[in-house]
């Protein structure tokens, strides 16, 4: 059984993703209810298209995020490094997984299942409020970052060609799904294949 310092993990997480009025002690109480999962390189944390049965705190290591684009082609979106919140959208709105997350080296995640999520988000307790506000903050950052990216794109002198459009679509879509946020630095989220895409842009069908 691995040892995880939940108080330290909660502090670390809130340092990176500040949520209003959330004390690390209360987030640690949420993490106590989550199940630790050890992943070997190549193990799947979640798979695109599946019904989401849990949300995850990635607490060690990294996962490679990939999905099929709207043409059905598999695409790597990013490598997400701990600490990160993964898969919460599916529990909030009941949607299926928008991407697959595969361990990029050994990794550890804490999984909070759907029943636990529903119970906690309905609780009038400090830990219930902690979970709601962490999820709210993450969702707001996803949407805010995507809005900024769209507005920046529209204000910039980018040529209106299909290759640029597709690349930007993937970036914005990934941002909306929470895989890439503008205000995280490269040590948190490493964009995959972008340079390759620019050198060999996908062709218009």
């Amino acid at each position: 059984m691995m040892h995880l310092d939940l108080a330290a993990l909660a502090s670390d997480f809130l340092g990176r993703f500040p949520a209003p009025g959330v004390h690390p002690r209360d987030l640690a109480a949420v993490l106590e209810l989550a199940r630790p999962i050890e992943l070997a390189h190549g193990d799947a944390l979640c798979r695109e298209g599946e019904r989401g049965e849990a949300m995850f705190w990635l607490v060690r290591g990294a996962v490679r995020v990939s999905h099929r684009d709207f043409k059905g082609q598999p695409r790597d979106l990013a490598v997400l490094a701990a600490p990160a919140l993964v898969g919460h959208m599916a529990l909030v709105d009941g949607s299926n997984r928008s991407a697959s997350c595969i361990a990029d080296g050994p990794a550890v995640a804490l999984a909070l299942d759907r029943a636990g999520f529903q119970r906690l988000t309905g609780e009038d307790t400090p830990r219930g409020a902690a979970l709601r506000r962490v999820v709210l903050t993450s969702l707001a950052r996803q949407l805010g970052a995507a809005n900024r990216r769209v507005r920046g794109l529209l204000d910039a002198a980018v040529p209106d060609d299909p290759d640029t459009a597709e690349l930007e679509l993937r970036r914005i879509s990934g941002t909306l799904d929470g895989w890439k946020l503008d205000d995280l630095d490269d040590s948190d989220v490493r964009v995959v294949r972008t340079d390759d895409d620019l050198r060999n842009p996908p062709r218009r069908r």
Binding site: D93, R132, L143, N147, V150, L169
Partner: peptide, 28 residues
């Protein structure tokens, strides 16, 4: 209020993502 906000933000994210993909498909 917080539970309502979670749902409405998630819906806006999905709606925005679908709208962007629709715009691309139509342009493409």
């Amino acid at each position: 209020l917080e539970r309502h906000l979670m749902g409405s933000l998630a819906r806006r994210i999905r709606k925005t993502n679908l709208a962007i993909q629709k715009a691309w498909r139509e342009a493409s």
